[in-house]
Design a protein around this nucleic acid. Sequence first.
RNA 1: GGCGCCAUCGUCUAGUGGUCCAGGACACUUGGUUCUCAUCCAAGAGAUCGCGGGUUCGACUCCCGCUGGCGCUACCA
Length: 508
Amino acid sequence: MSIRLRYAPSPTGELHLGSLRTIIFNILFAAQTPGGFFLIRVEDTDQARAVEGSAKRQLEALRWMGIEPDEGVCLDAAGNLIEKGEFGPYTQSMRLDIYGKYADQLLEAGSAYRCFCTSERLEQMRAEQQAAHLPPRYDRRCRSLSKEESEKRAHNEPFVIRMAIPDEGTVGFTDIIRGEISFQCADLDDQILMKTDGFPTYHLAVVVDDHLMNITHILRGEEWLPSTPKHLLLYKAFGWQEPLYAHVPVILGPDGKHKLSKRDGDVAVINYRDKGYLPEALFNALAFVGWSPGTEEEFLTREQLTEKFKLEKAQKSAAVFSFERLDYVNGWYIRQLSLAKVVEHMLPWLVGEALLEKGANGYRFTSELAIEGAVEPYLETVARAVQERLKHFDETVEAAGFFFRRPEFSPESVQIVVPKKGELGTTVKILESAIEFLKGIPQWTVEVIEERLHEFILEGEYKNGEVLWPIRASLTGAAGSPGAFEMLAILGKEESLARLHAVLEITS
RNA sequence: GGCGCCAUCGUCUAGUGGUCCAGGACACUUGGUUCUCAUCCAAGAGAUCGCGGGUUCGACUCCCGCUGGCGCUACCA
């Protein structure tokens, strides 16, 4: 039988980085077996916390990551939420009758019982237990109700259905990542299975659905470890074959003290798309949190990852997520991109900042620039110049804005054209003669410009920085940018000279 | 408090009894390339393998205890 894995999001928010990591482990593992399936089931049994559109947005984030479930709740080509597969519905709120049926079966077999205790009593009981330093657990008052009384009260009193946990015994299992784990039944609470509103709790629904959907491996977050014995007991009560479990460690925030959360930075996957990260970079960075191929390879394709992934080699301990390493990895992936791709990624930022606009015949500049030729080839040239400087694409305007808009100088900000050890007066003089010299350069290519400017520097007995820094800074208005020769060549003779003149004007 | 899980450089990790006075990567420092930033290259600093006991000729690796951290402890998932 082929292996079947699932991710079961509750539609209460955006897809979290930690969940994505769990999903990545799931799909890498599923893809290792021919015919391995990965499905998505929406666990919307908590009506109060449900957030409209959440499931769809989580699927959209996954689609951006290049992850499409084989079955279950997914997106069609047009981006609409649909379900596919023969074990549906894959949305728990549409399976209420199923849970009711199985809860009754448990009731019948004595593995569960009705509980009529009010939440007020429960709360009070917990408060007393805590005050007495006892573990807060249901006191099983309703467990001893006779069948007749239970039936009778069920007609006119609200009730929940609780699991009847055995008084003694041990529940153990072998976790693929952690090995042998066991719990004492005596430590387990009589978990609520069905709520008063007729909805199941996670514990009932997850077991019923995983069984009905033929799930073979449950690969989920470590926070589920303590409820696994309850699930195992349910499988036993139903007489079902239990699945294999693997609990992956949580991802911690930078202080290593708590689960990665909003106050640590962006935790919603979709934020990374919006900040100009590459999905392959996020995928890689996350695959390496809590797992390593055991070699010194750093960047693996999804195919290589699938081939090399070993669930047993996953780390047992929680890991701090490194935003710094993500940036490093993303920068590396940006450097591997073709120029056309770099342009494609930069475009939205350029247009968003109104440096470019889309016209009938392609893109055009929004400000007056003396740049000849079509914009498209110019964009590729720009991409080549800034590609290695970008860590993520939301830096586009900062790194490349000056290719689309002349720098604006005030009498104060123009100081940037003065090199570290220089002064404004001499810098202006050098710029003046450099401009005259540049005017005489016959062929405006990087090679020729570089060759001739070196001659100029030699003749004037200047240092490179005395000439090149002022030129570069005049052209860009920025402390960091591509080199002077490159900037001159890309901007062209006319635009370059215009920018240099502008600096002279403001300094005179 | 109870139960469970975990424990190698600041961080992510390699390491499954000797080849480890612990290897790689990020971050950091320095140098090279260089007009700047970035890239790239080179070097460096950084871990008495949480602590204490065992087992063994020999332990980062196995066992026990301790400590610490995290997770769970809802009619949430």
